[in-house]
Every structure is written in structure tokens, then in C-alpha cells.
């Protein structure tokens, strides 16, 4: 049960990452590797502030701001300097690695003794239930874990509603259109470059919060924690799409969150069954590969006449 709660919580935290990837990958059709750096950047900023006794909520928001800065830089590289989107992300991610080490001053900051959102959750659990453990349908569950899960859930629901609202406003609709058909929306008076920068800033800001929350939940920030996160987010978005089977906005946002949770649960189960943790990244990469290729293969199978071999 503790394992399940933990998987759900991490899945929910990383669904912010998935939402960020949804913006860059589905709205703007960019595989934005910046997130590998910006999730660590968010975690690093948040951890340093928390160790220096800053209010953890403010520290988390600072993580968001860090992500926004990282995304803005990537956006400017793409829009103003016309650097290939993939390369822009790689440049910023690589640069951020050094920046993160400077921010943290070392490669790992432990947060276990500091006052963080997790400590708040622990205290709230104590005062609500008056007990460090509570009976949940026959399972004894730590109140700390339960309150943490509920708090994260509330945050994610807020983030989803906020994002859904934003993408239905005039500004957000125009942002989606700049990804869908830049030429058309430019002819309607939108500065597509600026919208792309704003979109990447928002995307990486969400990823920055994911990093800040993850650091507080797992009790440390680490310079290596961002490696492979972009693939993780892509996997979540892709799973979410196959779950909801739809590109409609509301379902896509819900799907990204559901995909992230489901993927985390699958990983927890696989690890429990004896998957070597060292193989986790390889398995994730293979999974995304399969998810990208299988639908096309299945379609070709279905319509062998319409798409004969050798013609394209």
C-alpha cells in the first residue's frame, strides 16, 4: 500500500512534467530536451532556498520561475536565432548542467532536516488524524504519505484546470494555433515567434515545479535527477493519448496526467517484479519507440491495398 501511495504521488508530481511536454510536443510539435535541465534547475533552486529557510511554497514558486527562464532561453534560441529546435534544447540543457551545479554548490543537497512542503504535510497529518498511521480500507497507511498525496492531487487538479482555462482564452487559443498553423495565425496578426517563446516558458515552468516538488518529496535535489526526463514525459503523453483516444483539449490534459500516473505504476510494478533499476531508462526508451512505431505498423497492416510496398 505504501508502495502504491508512493507511486501515485510521484506519478502525480511528474504529471506536471507530462503537462509541460504536452505543450511543447503536442501544441508546438517540438521534442524539447530543455526539460532534462529545467526539472533539475527547478529542484536545485527550490532546494537551496529551502535549506536557507525560505518558505517552501515560495521556494516551489521560485522553481517555477527557474523553469520559465530556461524555457524562455530555449525559445529565444529557436525564434530569434533560428537554431533548430532540437539543438536549442540540447544547448540549454547542457548549459544548465553547469548552472545547476553552481546553484547547488555541490552535486547533491539533502532536504530531510529542512522545513519543506513534506514537513508541512507531515504536521497536517498529525493534527488531522492525531496519529502517524491511519487505517485505510484495512491497510495501515502513514498519514504523512496520505496527506502528501492529497495535497499533490489538489495542486495537479488546480494546474489542469488552470491550463484548460488558459488554452481556451483568446491568448491560449492563439498559442495553440501558432503550433497548428503558424502561417495562418501570422496572417491574423499574431507574432508567432513571441508565442512560441511564451509557450516554451510555460512548458518549462511547469517542469520546474515538478522538479521542486520531486526534490521535496524524495528529500534531496541531485544534479543527475533530470536525465531522461523528456522521454519519461513523452511516454506519459503518448500513454495518455492512447487512453483517451482523443486530441480534444480537455481529454488531452486529463490523458497526460492519467498517462503519467499509469506509467509510474507500471514502473513500480516492474521494479517490484525484479526489473534491474539500471535498465529502467532503456526500457522507457524502448517503450516510447514502440509507442511511436506500433500505431503506424498496425495501420499499414490494416490497409495493405491502399499503401502497397514500394510506393510512398
Amino acid at each position: 500500500m505504501t508502495l502504491l501511495l508512493g507511486a501515485l504521488t510521484i506519478g502525480l508530481i511528474l504529471s506536471l512534467l507530462a503537462l509541460g511536454i504536452y505543450i511543447s510536443y503536442r501544441v508546438f510539435d517540438i521534442a524539447d530536451i530543455t526539460v532534462d535541465g529545467s526539472i533539475t534547475f527547478g529542484a536545485a533552486i527550490c532546494a537551496v532556498l529551502i535549506v536557507n529557510r525560505v518558505n517552501p511554497l515560495l521556494a516551489t514558486l521560485a522553481g517555477f520561475a527557474g523553469g520559465v527562464v530556461a524555457g524562455t532561453v530555449t525559445g529565444i534560441l529557436q525564434a530569434k536565432f533560428k537554431i533548430n529546435p532540437l539543438l536549442s534544447g540540447i544547448l540549454v540543457m547542457t548549459g544548465l548542467y553547469s548552472v545547476n551545479l553552481h546553484v547547488m554548490g555541490k552535486s547533491n543537497i539533502p532536504l530531510l532536516s529542512a522545513e519543506s512542503l513534506t514537513t508541512w504535510a507531515e504536521r497536517m497529518g498529525q493534527s488531522w488524524f492525531g496519529n502517524p498511521e491511519v487505517n485505510l480500507g484495512g491497510w495501515m497507511v502513514s498519514t504523512r504519505d496520505l496527506v502528501t498525496l492529497l495535497a499533490v492531487l489538489a495542486m495537479i487538479v488546480t494546474a489542469c484546470l488552470g491550463l484548460y482555462w488558459f488554452f481556451r482564452t483568446e491568448l491560449g487559443t492563439a498559442m495553440r494555433a501558432s503550433g497548428d498553423n503558424p502561417q495562418m495565425i501570422r496572417a491574423l496578426g499574431v507574432n508567432v515567434e513571441r508565442y512560441r517563446i511564451m509557450g516554451l516558458a510555460l512548458s518549462n515552468g511547469l517542469v520546474g515545479i515538478a522538479g521542486a516538488l520531486l526534490a521535496q518529496y524524495q528529500g534531496f535535489a541531485d544534479a543527475q535527477m533530470g536525465i531522461g526526463m523528456v522521454v519519461w514525459g513523452l511516454a506519459s503523453v503518448i500513454i495518455g493519448e492512447s487512453l483517451t483516444g482523443s486530441r480534444s483539449l480537455g481529454l488531452a490534459i486529463f490523458g497526460a496526467v492519467a498517462g503519467s500516473i499509469l506509467f509510474r505504476l507500471l514502473v513500480a510494478i516492474a521494479l517490484r517484479w525484479g526489473l534491474n533499476p539500471n535498465d529502467l531508462k532503456l526500457v522507457t526508451a524502448l517503450f516510447v519507440f514502440a509507442a511511436l512505431v506500433l500505431p503506424r505498423l498496425l495501420q499499414q497492416r490494416k490497409r495493405p491495398v491502399a499503401a502497397p510496398l514500394g510506393s510512398s
Binding site: E170, L171, A174
Partner: peptide
Amino acid sequence: LAIRRGQARGLGWA
């Protein structure tokens, strides 16, 4: 999108 052609786009419902 078209009805706001060339105008500022804010946070009002589209």
C-alpha cells in the same frame, strides 16, 4: 482567432 485579427489577445474566454 479571426475575429481578433491584428488586435491584442487577452485572457478573456475565446
